[in-house]
Nucleic acid binder design. Structure first.
Lengths: 151, 151
DNA sequence: AATATATCCGATTAATTGAGTCAACTTTAA
DNA sequence: TTAAAGTTGACTCAATTAATCGGATATATT
């Protein structure tokens, strides 16, 4: 039941981009440095975020990435889901499930997994990058590097 | 963010034992058959459940396992936690975390992970085996095998 | 006493996933 | 033209998961 580095790093990177919203393209190298992530690995993560329409890129020198929408329009849920797939405790309750279990029966465990899934979605879909920014400005010392290396 | 087979199989097995609560020792073989799990693997899962005081065993012929407490006293949360460890999205918010990240800083992502963790705990700690039994009798056709092979 | 049925325990293995690296390519500002 | 930066896919390595297996101990039944 752990998030992988994909979700954790991706969220850190998106928050970093959110703090720079409106500043023009930000290079992956600078994000990777601030957030202590391998650039090569970060490249892998930014790709699905771009395809999902969450960030847009500017190629070439002085290029980089920026949020495709305002921070208040991007939820933690969409970021994590893009990188990790559905945040469901089992495949059978994930939105994209394709008939992995027998739906003709009532399943007492599936009901539980659905409740877990709904509660997780409730949390992550309610938090936007703007909420994170506000929280950051209120409670941190305004040092971007303060995002800890949570495992 | 998926449960492993440990948690899923273990929950099915515990529910099976709950349905037979008061019937004396139930053999792993019979549970494995009803729930379509490998007996050998189930042995591995029942061991921590016994050590956690959730089931007790009777050795020898006609032996088996039974719940150590009434179904209403055993939550889904304690079962899953025993088999999977803390249901936290990251190590740094797990109860047994030992200083994996720098606590001198305020971390905007950690706050989110804590909320996810709390919401998951809220769900699983509120559901007992007795709730599952009641649900089963109300909504299923009383066929134990009806617990689907959720992945 | 012998046997069948169980739990118990540790070692081993097979398969999958996660995490990260790397190389080659395209685009574009300076 | 050159260097910076995005883009892509293949690849490696380690860790975890999911079992399997063999043998030891315990005990009800015959």
């Amino acid at each position: 039941m752990k998030l992988s580095t994909r979700g954790r790093y991706g969220l850190k990177a998106m928050f970093d981009l959110a703090l720079h919203f409106g500043d023009g393209p930000i290079s992956l190298t600078s994000i990777a440095e601030r957030q202590a992530i391998s650039v090569n690995y970060l490249e892998q993560l930014i790709s699905p975020l771009r395809k999902a329409g969450l960030v847009k890129s500017v190629r070439g020198a002085q290029g980089g990435y920026m949020l495709a929408k305002a921070p208040e329009l991007i939820t933690v849920g969409i970021i994590l889901t893009t990188l990790e797939g559905p945040l469901a405790p089992t495949d059978c309750v994930a939105d994209d499930d394709e008939e992995t279990c027998d739906h003709t029966h009532y399943c007492v465990t599936k009901v539980i997994y659905e409740k877990i899934y709904e509660s997780i979605k409730g949390v992550v879909n309610a938090i936007t990058l703007q909420h994170m920014i506000d929280d950051f400005h209120e409670n941190s010392n305004h040092v971007i590097e303060n995002i800890c290396e949570c495992k």
